[in-house]
């Protein structure tokens, strides 16, 4: 792709999210989302491979439907209450429809089935943009609409954590596994949203950091399935020792960063007298933990048969910049002691 066009597209990607962030009017927010969708499609299909074209088509259909439904819900809101403000949604019908449309946009189960297929068709950089940056604008809207009835979000959240764990069990392709892990994390965020929105922000932040570092690790290894991960010790030994910690942090094991949002969310759910819900979500996290464990097992605990020359690529000097990976992976592993500071930062 021409660097000039790439610059224009990336600028439009930033512009769309910024417009959605700064808007208080539904039409303006919808415009931002549309600009976002339009700008990422050529990035998806930049190799013109059949798979990437198909991924772009599926993404376009899902996002255009979701955007149209969002605008329809806000028009209905305007007809019923005469309001266009995002912060003043009072009627339950448009609020529910907007919640569902945004769930389709970010891929919450049961509206998730486009996400694994789309992510499987992309290269890792675009997949990184899709699973981090593209989630921001819909979440900004979800955090603002202040749902009156928490049932929809709880159902979406529960289904997402379950489906995200369950769907990833049988996958061998890393991008599909990452898509299901993304669905599971988004489920946690949607679950806590009606009770404590600051925790949603916290979970989104840690999700962004962990997903960023996971994608960067896979990109460094040029890995798209589990088999490729098994020889990563011969390419980058240090990263190979760190990656299981990163994956377990995604799974949410205690001394790592990923434990922080899960811990706070479970605590808040029990405080809200929902112990059954908390238990169920904690159990569905075990499903996700299974495939993270499988990834780390095949990455570090197995010795793949290899010839002598195949074990030496780590001696070569790598060309890629290592600063983003270093920063994000250390944050994704060791941020748990900063939990009180982060909570103080995010609580209004």
């Amino acid at each position: 792709m021409n660097p000039l066009i790439l610059t224009i597209l990336l600028f439009a990607l930033g512009l769309g999210t910024t417009i959605t962030f700064m808007s208080s009017h539904w039409l303006f927010a919808w415009m931002g989302l549309e600009i976002n969708t339009l700008a990422i499609i050529p990035l998806m299909t930049q190799h013109h491979h059949p798979r990437s074209t198909e991924a772009g088509t599926k993404y376009f259909l899902a996002q255009a439907t979701a955007a149209a439904m969002l605008l329809f819900a806000s028009v209905t809101n305007a007809w019923l209450t005469g309001q266009w403000d995002i912060l003043q949604m009072s009627h339950p019908l448009p609020t529910t429809m907007i919640t569902l449309a945004l769930a389709l946009k970010i891929g919450l189960a049961p509206l998730h089935s486009w996400l694994p297929e789309v992510l499987q068709g992309l290269d890792l950089t675009t997949g990184l943009i899709l699973s981090t940056w593209q989630k921001l604008a819909p979440f900004a809207l979800l955090l603002q609409i202040n749902p009156t009835n928490p049932t929809v979000l709880i159902m979406l959240g529960i289904t997402s954590t379950l489906v995200g764990g369950w769907g990833g069990l049988n996958q061998t392709q890393l991008r599909k596994i990452l898509a299901y892990s993304s669905i599971a994390h988004l489920g946690w965020m949607a679950l806590i949203l009606p009770f404590y929105p600051s925790l949603t922000l916290l979970a989104l932040l840690t999700y962004l950091i962990m997903t960023l570092s996971t994608f960067l690790v896979f990109k460094l290894n040029k890995a798209t399935n589990i088999n490729t991960l098994a020889i990563s010790w011969s390419k980058t030994p240090i990263i190979t020792t760190l990656t299981p910690l990163l994956l377990l942090s995604l799974g949410g094991l205690p001394p790592l960063t990923g434990f922080m949002p899960k811990w706070f969310i479970l605590q808040e759910l029990t405080k809200q007298n929902l112990p059954l819900l908390a238990t169920f979500t904690a159990l569905t996290a075990l499903l996700s933990l299974y495939f993270y464990l499988r990834l780390s097992y095949s990455m570090t605990l197995t010795m793949f048969p290899n010839n002598l020359m195949g074990t030496t690529p780590w001696r070569f000097f790598t060309q890629s910049t290592s600063l983003p990976l270093a920063l994000s992976i250390s944050m994704a592993i060791a941020l748990l002691p900063l939990a009180p500071a982060m909570m103080a930062l995010l609580t209004p």
Partner: peptide, 12 residues
């Protein structure tokens, strides 16, 4: 954009 995707999928 949808029509361009139509052309692209028809190609591939």
């Amino acid at each position: 954009a949808g029509l361009a995707l139509l052309v692209a999928t028809t190609r591939t």
